[in-house]
Each structure stands twice: as structure tokens, then as C-alpha cells.
Simulated scan of single mutants.
Amino acid sequence: MSAFFASSTASHGQIWDVDIYVRASREDGDKEQSETISNQITMLTDFVHGRPELRLHEIRKDDGISGVTFDRPGFHAVMDDVRSGAANCVVVKDYCAIIGLNQKDLVNQGILA
């Protein structure tokens, strides 16, 4: 899990307004959301709710959209929330949700064997 904060300086007792961002590039049959998306949402909301310094603002998602493109409505909504100050922390399961790398990309780059 990764958390990105809008400011590197946190004061004691500061509350962070969190956007959760989840993404999966494969659609799961005729289900409205893929199981991967559902699992990510559960894991990340549990993470946020288990930390008193984090306050959930919004869950943003892109289901069935490749991370290779930044033309993703959920990603744009997160960026709008950060720019407007509605969220000052973004929580993701892993960096690949944002930068669009998958396991094959990581193997090709020599990061995974």
C-alpha cells in the first residue's frame, strides 16, 4: 500500500483528507465491477479507517481502463480533488495503479524476474 501526501510536513494531530484510487485493466465478465476493484476498495478502506489521522474523502476508480493511458476519469477526479484541496493524501494499493505498469512491464524492465 502506498500513500502520497500533498505536503511533506505534517503537524502533530493533523488529519489527512484521503482519496482512495483503484484501477484494474481487465473487466470481470458481466459484473459491474471486477473482483480486483472490489478487493482493492475493501483493503484500502480498511487501511484508512484503521488510522485516526486519515479521513476518507472519496473513492475513485477506473475499472477496465489500461494504466498505459492517463485518459482515465477516476485518475482525473483524484487530480482535481488534490488541486482543489478537497484531498491532500492519495492512497493506492501499489504504484502500478497510477503509473500503469503491470507485471509484464516490470519483467521487461528487469525489475521482476
Rank of each mutant, 00 (worst) to 15 (best):
Phe70Gln: 08
Phe70Asp: 10
Phe70His: 08
Asp71Ser: 14
Asp71Arg: 11
Asp71His: 10
Asp71Ala: 15
Asp71Leu: 15
Arg72Asn: 07
Phe75Val: 08
Phe75Ala: 13
Ala77Asn: 08
Ala77Phe: 01
Val78Gln: 04
Met79Trp: 02
Met79Asp: 00
Asp80Ala: 10
Asp80Pro: 09
Asp81Leu: 06
Val82Met: 04
Val82Trp: 00
Val82Pro: 01
Val82Ile: 09
Arg83Leu: 13
Arg83Asp: 02
Arg83Val: 10
Ser84Glu: 05
Ser84Phe: 06
Gly85Trp: 07
Gly85Phe: 08
Ala86Leu: 06
Ala87Phe: 00
Ala87Ile: 05
Asn88Ala: 04
Asn88Thr: 02
Asn88Val: 10
Cys89Gly: 03
Cys89Glu: 01
Val90Cys: 04
Val91Glu: 02
Val91Pro: 03
Val91Gln: 02
Val92Gln: 00
Lys93Thr: 12
Asp94Lys: 00
Asp94Arg: 00
Asp94Gln: 04
Asp94Pro: 08
Tyr95Val: 14
Cys96Thr: 12
Cys96Trp: 11
Ala97Asn: 10
Ile98Phe: 11
Ile98Ala: 08
Ile99Glu: 12
Ile99His: 12
Gly100Met: 07
Gly100Ser: 05
Leu101Pro: 06
Leu101Glu: 12
Asn102Trp: 10
Lys104Met: 13
Lys104Cys: 08
Asp105Tyr: 03
Leu106Pro: 01
Leu106Arg: 14
Val107Glu: 15
Asn108Val: 06
Asn108Arg: 14
